[in-house]
Design a protein around this nucleic acid. Structure first.
Length: 531
RNA sequence: GGGCCGCUAGCUCAGCAGGUAGAGCAACGCCCUUUUAAGGCGUGGGUCAUUGGUUCGAAUCCAAUGCGGCUCACCA
């Protein structure tokens, strides 16, 4: 199984899989991890981490390895600030410093604030073929699953402090404890740990109320490890072999550096890691995304890119460099690029062997279901042409499909998805120049001189009589003739024709455009200009 | 201050298992028997930031430098 996957020159996901096997040895099961605090919208930059893991998981599985793909929701993290655009900010304000799992969801989408963010992600990931096993840290901490980890951290308090101090400007204080406590009186983490009894008892002070309390870490739901200790504890707990990180973590003195050392206290080893860079957005044009504000999440991207193409964007880009996801005219090029990649995969486009190997792998990894790679290319027609068809049919996707008589049954679903994206793009992001709609028969006719009306009337006559039978070239010649016969400049005739048909001075190449629209539609529009 | 990323055609970027510089857009030209372009074909255009090194050979590897950006040194 693994022999057909080349080691050298392979895709970065394949190289990473090889590295994991090399560094971690031959194992029955490899654990690949990812995770985040659901303290706000999980945006497309966060998605980069998820798909990075997914690609490495697929590469490992294709080498015949068993893989566990875990995704940790850090929903026992603290609610630090109220995001903009959330309903009832005053209510939310009262929950600051409490764990996000205890914050109400003022959108009433889920049972709590953290869960609302989680559910959105969990619902959409299958669309792009990603199926992690979700771990919920609030539930785990509150049910005392990590009691041994917390005790170990307490026992090695000085050692941990020494590790963390290596990179700090201000050393941690003498009385620092490697654990944080949510007050049982207020649920907030405005607390100070005062002492530890050497076993399971912790005494803390609620700094808001000035009250003190002793709790048992075997039974209290209120203790949690701080991030730089929590992360390595979980590596050890789950035996994590691979987990990527953003450049904030994967930098000298960042949390990966300290966790690499702290994990040994928990009897584990650091996973293989890799850094991914951030994602920029281009061409959203100030449109407010579904999540509000200038961020995009996977839902926003899937509005305009099909699932394969969303994957393709990430598969074809080296993770450690920044890139932009475009919502502007670049969208056309992305679709063309993907179609080219597909043509190369199916041998319809000849390129050098080296490039061919690379593109084929990118195509495979871009597919939603790794077990069912398409056996024939999609219905390939330029994206721009689809946009024109959609505008002719006013966004009626089924009519567009019906108008394309050579679509094969196996291509219909993919075409439908693509048309949906194309229409979303036209209506939401396409530049105004790009958009038009056919005039309706009851629209007010454009004011014209007599000879212009006559020219359009001639055109209508020709269309009714010859359009179906003549070639595009013949028809094109006639258009010039109609202008000349009526003493009109070509440019003027084109202009009034576009004005009559779509209400704009310019448009798609006229002869082909009229043929696509068909006799009946053109006739009903031009009849308004009949003498 | 440490670490990292980027610097390739006018613009946006690809190329980075070292082996004759690529794409899209823009420009220019031609074409659809006649100057619409959101069509077709074609052309031009780059000392691959600089300097040095390794090599038969460097955009690609190494080292310094410059410019731009990110990030850590709070929290996570």
């Amino acid at each position: 199984m693994s022999n057909d996957v080349k080691k050298e020159g392979a895709h970065w996901a394949d190289q990473m899989a090889e590295r994991i096997i090399r560094e971690k040895g031959d194992k029955d099961m490899y654990t690949c991890a990812s995770g985040i605090t659901p303290s706000g919208t999980v945006h497309i930059g966060n998605f980069r981490e998820i798909i990075t893991v997914d690609l490495v998981v697929r590469a490992l599985r294709q080498r015949g390895k068993k893989v566990r793909f875990i995704y940790s929701w850090d929903d026992y993290d603290v609610f630090r600030k109220v995001p903009k655009n959330m309903p009832e900010p005053d209510l939310l304000e009262k929950y600051l410093r409490k764990p996000i799992t205890l914050v109400p969801d003022t959108t009433h989408y889920a049972e709590n604030y953290a869960r609302a963010n989680e559910v959105r992600v969990e619902k959409i990931l299958p669309t792009v073929g990603i199926y992690p096993e979700y771990l919920y840290q609030a539930e785990r901490y509150r049910s005392n699953r990590y009691v041994n980890g917390i005790k170990t951290a307490l026992e090695h308090r000085d050692e941990i402090r020494k590790i963390l101090d290596e990179y700090r400007t201000e050393p941690l204080k003498e009385d620092w404890y490697p654990v944080s406590v949510f007050s049982s009186f207020t649920d907030k983490d405005n607390t100070t740990v005062l002492s530890w009894d050497g076993e399971y008892g912790i005494t803390y002070r609620d700094d808001d109320l000035g009250k003190e309390e002793t709790i048992d870490i075997r039974t209290t739901p209120n203790t949690k490890l701080p991030w730089r200790i929590d992360w390595p504890m979980r590596w050890a707990e789950e035996n994590v072999d691979f987990e990527p990180g953003g450049k904030d973590h994967l930098t000298e003195g960042g949390s990966y550096d300290t966790s690499k050392k702290v994990v040994e206290i928990f009897g584990g080893k650091a996973p293989v890691s890799m850094r991914y860079d951030f994602i920029k957005l281009k061409g959203m044009g100030g449109k407010i995304s579904s999540s509000g504000g200038e961020v995009a999440d996977l839902y926003d991207v899937l509005e305009i890119y099909t699932p394969e193409i969303v994957r393709y964007l990430f598969v074809g880009t080296r993770p450690n460099s920044e890139f932009a996801i475009s919502f502007d005219l670049d969208v056309l090029k992305i679709y063309e690029d993907y179609d080219n990649c597909e043509r190369i995969y199916f041998g319809l486009l000849d390129v050098k062997e080296q490039r061919k190997e690379k593109e084929k792998r990118i195509y495979e990894l871009s597919q939603v279901d790794p077990e069912s790679i398409p056996t024939e290319p999609g219905y390939q027609v330029p994206f721009r042409h689809l946009c024109n068809l959609l505008q002719i049919y006013e966004g009626d996707i089924e009519k567009v499909i019906a108008s394309l008589t050579d679509v094969k049954p196996g291509q219909v679903d993919r075409l439908r998805t693509r048309l949906t994206c194309a229409w979303n793009w036209i209506t939401t992001y396409a530049p105004e120049d790009f958009k038009w709609s056919l005039a309706k028969s009851d629209d007010e006719p454009v004011a014209l001189y007599e000879k212009e009306k006559k020219a359009l009337s001639d055109l209508r006559g020709y269309v009714n009589e010859h359009l179906d039978a003549c070639s595009e070239k013949e028809f094109s010649e006639y258009i010039y003739k109609a202008a000349a016969d009526n003493g009109l400049e070509n440019a003027d005739f084109f202009r009034i024709t576009y004005l009559a048909l779509i209400g704009k001075e310019k448009g798609p190449k006229l002869a082909g455009f009229i043929k696509i629209c068909g006799k009946d539609r053109i006739d009903s529009i031009l009849s308004k200009y009949q003498e």
